[in-house]
Lab assay of single mutants.
Amino acid sequence: EFILQPIHNLLMGDTKEQRILNHVLQHAEPGNAQSVLEAIDTYCEQKEWAMNVGDKKGKIVDAVIQEHQPSVLLELGAYCGYSAVRMARLLSPGARLITIEINPDCAAITQRMVDFAGV
């Protein structure tokens, strides 16, 4: 995967993360976080594997957030924003999600994903 990915990106003209974002923009409903998550899950199941938590493990994350109702949540590494959208949609009003992503391209994609999801 890591050796072939740059070749695939070159042939496709963009990165996997950008392709995931484009899929979301084309297939998800703006302002609907659940729709965004479903679009990412569908893309990763049908098109390309991606390094995200996914729906199965995501339900565990959901349960922890719902049980503890944090007022501040810190995410280290956002990748394409799946977990940020997943967690933010469950936060109480006034709660904050702080996401740190070292890769500026992934940070920009995450910001667009979060904005599109409306969270």
Rank of each mutant, 00 (worst) to 15 (best):
E1Q: 04
F2C: 10
F2S: 06
F2I: 04
I3T: 03
I3M: 09
I3L: 10
Q5R: 02
Q5H: 02
P6S: 13
I7M: 06
I7F: 01
H8N: 07
H8L: 08
N9H: 00
N9S: 03
N9I: 05
N9D: 00
L10P: 00
L10R: 01
L10M: 08
L11H: 01
L11V: 08
L11R: 01
M12K: 14
M12R: 10
G13V: 10
G13C: 10
D14V: 15
D14E: 09
T15I: 03
T15A: 13
K16T: 07
E17D: 08
Q18P: 14
R19S: 12
R19L: 08
R19P: 14
R19H: 07
I20N: 03
I20L: 04
L21Q: 02
N22I: 01
N22S: 00
N22D: 02
N22Y: 00
H23N: 01
H23D: 00
H23P: 08
V24M: 04
V24G: 03
V24L: 02
L25V: 00
L25M: 02
Q26K: 07
A28P: 12
A28E: 11
A28S: 06
E29Q: 15
E29K: 13
P30R: 03
G31W: 13
G31E: 12
G31A: 04
N32K: 08
N32Y: 12
A33P: 14
A33S: 07
A33G: 04
Q34R: 15
Q34L: 14
Q34H: 12
S35N: 01
L97M: 15
L97V: 15
I98L: 10
I98T: 08
I98V: 13
T99A: 02
T99P: 13
I100S: 14
I100T: 05
I100L: 11
I100V: 11
E101K: 05
I102V: 04
I102M: 06
N103I: 09
N103K: 09
N103T: 15
N103Y: 02
P104L: 07
P104T: 09
C106F: 03
C106S: 13
A107G: 08
A107P: 12
I109N: 06
I109T: 15
I109F: 14
R112Q: 05
M113T: 00
M113I: 05
V114L: 11
V114E: 14
D115Y: 11
D115V: 10
D115A: 14
D115G: 09
A117P: 11
A117G: 09
G118V: 07
G118S: 15
V119M: 12
V119A: 14
V119G: 12
